[in-house]
Design a protein around this nucleic acid. Structure first.
Lengths: 193, 193
DNA sequence: CGGGCACTAGATAGATCGCTCTAGCGGGAG
DNA sequence: CTCCCGCTAGAGCGATCTATCTAGTGCCCG
């Protein structure tokens, strides 16, 4: 095993990066082990369920890490309105810096497999639900009615995911910046009601 | 040629349906010609550029048809606020009726190929841009400042696309209904300013 | 009626797919 | 030391992928 990362970790991280950019079906297992600098056999030792089990793990792990990354941007903000805005602004910046490759780590997979792999579909649903609860709990803590907070979390996450789609297609950050402004405005409006 | 549809049309429509459900890389050309009840050779006769050229055409044609479908829902509405709401409501209904398969016809492809096929990426960008202009022109015609209308179109389409992602993953229409309410509210607010 | 062309039809090539298999390495337990 | 076992390592299998190639069909135009 490597000094800093185990083979299993390298496989997961390499897969996460490739899946995010090219999707699940568009990435081969040979390509994964090459990128991870791992032997082919190791993949099936660590993931006896094959590519699908690996995909499920990648969804959960990458989803969890992205949730923490967003929280690390959101939580230090002075208030939930500017926190919301900053998440979108930084997402736009990160997207542009990665040559419009690194958007949501699981959205591409989610759309691809929603109708063909039930284990992976459930994994994406649970990650999204985890994010929604994190967002809603922060909004509720700021004084928004819990029922409103849930709806607001749904629209905020929809704005983010949808803007990612438009921005990757257009190679612009317009949609993310517009979405961030509207998301922040909606949070402000909910606080004032 | 068939009585109602040419072989080329059957190939395009079958591809559109399969791409929407399983994505571009997840659909094989064998599967396409089987679904289209077309001979294998015909595909490469009509699309000498192969699968990528077919994909590009599918994006443009399916994108154009979806734009018209949305317009057919939006335009008869008494005002732009209820028109906006109805687009989301009907999208939710259609999604549930198709067992959460038929969402945006090009979003899955757009995410998959954004970083790997420039011709197809440009096709998705042009379809999205066409939709944005259609939305913005209707909002501007209702009395919203053109610059605001553009931003509002970006957020409305982001809401729709993002909600599609969440709804297909969760097999619920929650996100689409919440997004529709917020989109309508944002249009109403823009009208009153 | 005969020639040309758009299209149909599918066999097949060559590469790549996910996956299985056996062999070998290396460190800890008895 | 010796045995065991988690892990590395990669050759190779059958299936499937996209794309090409040749042959055949049938309609339109001269």
């Amino acid at each position: 095993m490597s000094s800093t990362q185990t083979t299993k970790e390298r496989i997961v991280f390499a897969s996460a990066e490739l899946f995010r950019r090219q999707g699940y079906t568009g990435t081969g297992v040979k390509q994964i082990v090459a990128a991870a600098q791992a032997p082919f056999g190791s993949l099936y030792h660590h993931f006896p369920g094959g590519k699908e089990q690996l995909g499920e793990q990648v969804i959960r792990i990458a989803g969890g890490m992205y949730g923490e990354l967003v929280a690390a941007v959101f939580d230090p903000a002075p208030d939930v309105v500017t926190g919301t805005e900053q998440v979108f602004t930084l997402a736009a910046q990160h997207l542009a810096e990665s040559d419009y490759a690194d958007a949501c780590p699981i959205a591409t997979i989610a759309l691809e497999i929603a109708s063909s792999s039930e284990p992976m579909r459930i994994a994406t649903a649970e990650v999204f639900e985890d994010w929604l609860e994190k967002i809603a709990s922060r909004l509720a803590a700021a004084g928004i009615d819990p029922a409103d907070a849930r709806v607001l979390a749904l629209t905020t996450l929809s704005l983010l995911e949808g803007a990612f789609v438009l921005c990757r297609a257009a190679r612009t950050t317009d949609a993310l910046l517009a979405a961030g402004t509207q998301a922040a405005a909606a949070v402000r409006a909910a606080l004032e009601s």
